[in-house]
């Protein structure tokens, strides 16, 4: 139990191939709970691929081969015995563009619970209020729950998508460029939300925006050509990285 307190995710010699392409090379990573871990690196470095390993999203792609070990709370998740529905309930994903369902605001948030068999209106009402409150949307939207989610602003939609995940009480939130379709002010507000959420959830964020990684994360990894080149305290990575390749990338010399 002591160990699981120190790390919620642990990968060991993780390798992933898309056909012949070696997309992740011997990745050893430990993610600590209740903090924000950033993954940075140039396009194609494998950071989104790594993120998708954690809730087995790569299973949906043909020709993917994975070896090594990925443990979530000390349980191997690459094993065939793992129940993917349960895994994805506990490890949710936020995408680049908000992807609300073409349903009402209420039904978007209640969706996860419904498919997990929850039928009680009382339970659903409570979960919707709690989740929307957590993403700071409740006061704005409590009288508009029957509106279509597609009428919301992009920032509200992204918050709604996060609320939809929170409703099924996950442990880990994976965020793949969650602000890249948002303007700077909306970005700042989502970052503030992330900072609130880390008190109760673990977050791993993949971002192209290095300043964003610097602002929101406590630990950060730099990936290049499928390798995790350097991982450590964000303050150290952005002031005195150990590896020259990290420094070159962060300072914009790599290219």
């Amino acid at each position: 139990m002591q160990n699981s307190k120190l790390k919620i995710i642990e990968t060991n010699k993780l390798n992933l191939f898309y056909g012949a392409f070696h997309a992740l090379i011997d990745v050893n990573l430990q993610v600590k709970p209740r903090m924000i871990t950033g993954l940075i690196g140039p396009s194609g470095c494998g950071k989104s691929t790594l993120l998708r390993v954690f809730n087995r999203m790569n299973d949906l792609i043909d020709g993917v081969k994975i070896s090594g070990s990925v443990k979530f709370e000390n349980k191997e998740i690459l094993s065939d015995a793992i129940d993917l529905i349960t895994l994805r309930k506990r490890i949710g994903m936020v995408f680049q563009r908000p992807n609300p369902f073409p349903l009402t605001i209420f039904e978007n948030v209640a969706y996860g619970l419904r498919i997990h068999g929850e039928g009680s209106r009382l339970v659903l009402d409570e979960a919707v209020q709690k989740s929307l409150t957590a993403v700071l949307l409740w006061d704005e939207l409590k009288d508009k729950l029957s509106l279509s989610a597609l009428e919301l602003s992009l920032e509200q939609q992204q918050r709604l998508c996060i609320a939809r995940l929170l409703a099924v009480t996950p442990d880990l939130l994976l965020m793949d460029e969650p602000c890249s379709s948002l303007d700077p002010l909306a970005t700042m507000r989502i970052e503030e939300l992330m900072n609130e959420l880390k008190k109760e959830y673990t977050i791993i964020i993949v971002t192209h925006n290095m300043q964003q990684a610097a602002r929101v994360s406590q630990e950060c990894g730099f990936m290049l050509l499928g390798e995790l080149v350097e991982f450590g305290d964000t303050k150290q990575i952005f002031t005195a990285p150990r590896d020259k390749r990290t420094d070159d990338y962060i300072t914009g010399r790599y290219g």
Binding site: Q211, T239, D247, I250
Partner: peptide, 9 residues
């Protein structure tokens, strides 16, 4: 320029 790492130093 928002320097980082060796630039910031």
């Amino acid at each position: 320029r928002q320097p980082e790492a060796s630039d910031l130093r």
